[in-house]
Design a protein around this nucleic acid. Structure first.
Lengths: 234, 234
DNA sequence: GTCTGTCTTTGCGCTAGCGCAAATAACAGA
DNA sequence: TCTGTTATTTGCGCTAGCGCAAAGACAGAC
């Protein structure tokens, strides 16, 4: 894998960086490649590096003391993750675990290095803040959904969110997603059983086609309707 | 109400600001006072101002299309709220509603003004990012709790969070909180009925004393235990 | 003191969603 | 093709928590 500095401009935080900045970052970065199911870092590790996913796909998840876990977000190519350490000055630890969903590689950059760069480059701070406000808003919305909306709709929302982030159209122009029922459950705050039952129901209605680690939205509009329609029962 | 520039240093985002900066901010600010139950801004309004609560208490909440709402956080004196507009350059709207829990006043500062100041003052950006990472982490934790933990524990957590933020010790050294059951429910992602039943149960056990818009933690340790103990049933 | 509006409690019935268990399906490697 | 592993489906029973409704408690206004 050979990276060119300007590739890094695809990272939203670096969209306004100069070519020199990008070279600096690339030189300081270490490329780490890991296999499906392995981890970039664990919740609780010291947050010494931030990462930029170069290839593959990963997920960020948080687990409770009892071991149950939720999916905070999925990470696609050219997305930055684990960047909290660059902001918090004190010794900090990652608040979540990053696991590869398929063979992946990521550029690891020392948190303190980005921290130093931001001191003299306001646009970097702004672009990072931009990213952070996005996360805040997303988490707030998901929190509200989880608190007030019922499962079926939350699953629909998860599928739509995934579609927006990484939906790939197949030959028939249908949107195809590659996730296990368990993943979907962790994204929607429910159990794999309920996800399975819901997808089966939707398949019966002709909204989706399902398979092992696969969901095809054959009628995206129908899913949108489930996600959006006013719930007159409340 | 007469404000002195250095009062603003109590705001975490301004802790490292110069006296000149603080004066600038104060001069550009407008003091808005509102009554209990009234609103600083509504979800969906253009985010033209950011606020600093000078006196009183407020809550930030988000509501769904169907009108159900959740409590995102409570705002105490010298906390900043509604600051997203200072980061996002495009026309943005508040993602939440800010309502006064008691008569309150807040300093309103134009978002663009803080935005400009940050261009040349890296420490401002850092302190704002610091705040934002805190929110991200808190929302992530609360999201996980809501998804994986049962109601009783979530209510316990809410009480402890409130205690940390604004607990006032009364004459007996007990921690006293002033919230309606409805508020507590919106913070914990449940209903006022369940909160009421849970508090009654705790009162029977001698963990708390309750009253109208009042919860006294007479045995905080017991509440901590409920919030923390491993749930062997899972 | 009394009235009024708001907040709280509690009984009751109900159901959405959980989670076990067992069967089945799909894939991966030998 | 066979075999072990992992993912998925579905029946079944259960319960945590919801939400209505009605009664009670409290606080402020007059």
């Amino acid at each position: 894998m050979n990276l060119h500095p300007t590739d890094l401009r695809r990272v939203s935080v670096f969209q306004n960086a100069t070519d020199d900045d990008l070279s600096l970052l690339l030189n300081r970065g270490i490329l780490r490649s890991i296999e499906e199911g392995e981890f970039f870092f664990f919740q609780g590790d010291p947050a010494k590096y931030l990462y930029i996913l170069v290839s593959g796909r990963a997920k960020l998840m948080q687990s409770s003391a009892a071991g149950q876990q939720v999916n905070l977000r999925t990470i696609n190519e050219w997305q930055m993750f684990g960047a909290l350490g660059a902001v918090r000055e004190k010794e900090v630890t990652y608040p979540a675990t990053a696991q590869a969903l398929e063979s992946s590689s990521a550029l690891a950059i020392e948190s303190v290095f980005l921290h130093e760069m931001m001191q003299t480059r306001p646009y970097l701070s702004f672009d990072l803040m931009q990213l952070m406000t996005g996360y805040i808003q997303e988490m707030q919305s998901r929190y509200r959904e989880l608190a007030t909306e019922k499962v079926e709709r939350r699953i629909a929302r998860s599928l739509l969110r995934l579609t927006a982030q990484m939906g790939v159209k197949n030959a028939q122009g249908h949107i195809e997603l590659a996730f296990t029922r368990q993943d979907l459950a962790e994204m929607s705050g429910t159990t794999l059983y309920t996800v399975s039952r819901t997808l089966s129901e939707w398949e019966r209605l002709g909204l989706v086609q399902t398979g092992r680690e696969r969901v095809v939205l054959s009628n995206p509009h129908g899913i949108v309707q489930i996600a959006e329609e006013l719930d007159e029962s409340r």
